[in-house]
Write a protein that binds this DNA or RNA. Structure first.
Lengths: 207, 207
DNA sequence: GTCTATAAATTGATAGAC
DNA sequence: GTCTATCAATTTATAGAC
């Protein structure tokens, strides 16, 4: 139950905006993650935020646009922190260790938003497009991949955004999802974290 | 667009039940998978099935119970075909190859149901319990794991249901999900399937 | 910046006829 | 086995006052 405050929530606290708007965003984030977007009514959001229902529509043109504003901030967070400082490590092994820790931590800290987006991804094509844009059609990522190949001689020469998606982000986020959703212990007692590290190394190092 | 007919649909065609009930189940399966459970109305289901709305409530006590009946059949399908014939192969490598193909095929064939359940898993605790029961608290699976350790000398002695969930099913179904959801090619042109095989071998073989 | 009042439309579900 | 008619409740969204 001891929820970690996400980066998004922290940023929201400091952002300059009407108190009512902030409270609505925070309440929507929590309720959408807990009950799902469709099962949360604007009346519930207003109650949880301690504002009137009418106020929601002063700041957001629709319930959908509330969801949009929340997810947009997730994509930004993800993009801005992804593979940052990729050339800082002495070996590929260290890079992968740091990357794995960082993304698992990111998933834990932003789990509320991940839940919301995870639900939508299954049936909302515009969410899939947004994710594809963040991961595959993202200039930053191509730059980082090139940087990895240049810096680490044993890096997989075939590394590309699609392989990164299927071979790295898939295993990594499914691990995070399973751990957080099923409340499994996330430390290495059972060797599953070591196992994940090896699975990721397979991709970063290639054959 | 050329949807494969799922095992569930095939079974439904042959099952003995009122034509109206069958049509409702089929329509609900399609619409839930396409639009999501909450965004599908009973009016739409009736229209797609070509029956009246009232008839739905003759066979199902609520919209929720319709979803329940659909997902229950998924769990049964999954359980009944999981790790079947696990001792038939000459080597662990062959077992993993066959297992991987079989589950990717299963995911493709039952993708409509996977989509529906995938959505629910994020916010419906009863769905998480059901999945945990199918994968972790399933007598069959423990039996198969024991069989693997007995038959293949190089099998990972630490293999257990939880490691299977995080180390095998996670990477495998995230691969299937990404491939099917983003319409990526699923064959091995880019080596991602070979990569998946290696990642799974890491778990089955251990260190 | 925020609230009250309200409407228009939709939705899940039921009763009873055929 | 299937349909018609109908309802009660909910839900998003708006207009205008304070």
């Amino acid at each position: 139950m001891a929820e970690v405050r996400s980066e998004y929530e922290k940023a929201l606290m400091e952002a300059t905006m009407p108190a009512g708007k902030r409270k609505v965003l925070l309440a929507a984030l929590q309720l959408f993650a807990k009950q799902g977007f469709d099962r949360t009514t604007t009346a519930e959001i207003a109650k949880e935020a301690g504002v009137s229902e009418g106020l929601i529509y002063k700041y957001f043109k629709s319930k959908d646009s509330l969801l949009e504003e929340l997810s947009k901030s997730f994509y930004d967070q993800f993009r801005n922190t992804f593979l940052e400082g990729v050339g800082e490590y002495a070996t590929l092994d260290e890079l992968v260790t740091a990357f794995m820790r960082d993304r698992l931590n990111f998933a834990r800290e932003n789990f509320a938003l991940i839940r919301i987006i995870g639900q939508e991804v299954f049936m909302n094509p515009s969410f899939r497009t947004a994710i594809a844009n963040v991961v595959v059609n993202n200039g930053h990522i191509n730059k980082y991949i090139a940087e990895i190949k240049a810096k680490y001689p044993d890096a997989n020469p075939d590394l590309n955004p699609e392989l990164l998606l299927r071979g790295v982000l898939g295993p990594l986020f499914s691990y995070a999802l399973i751990t957080n959703l099923f409340h499994l212990k996330s430390d290495d007692e059972d060797g599953s974290l070591t196992n994940l590290h090896r699975q990721l190394m397979l991709v970063f190092k290639g054959k």
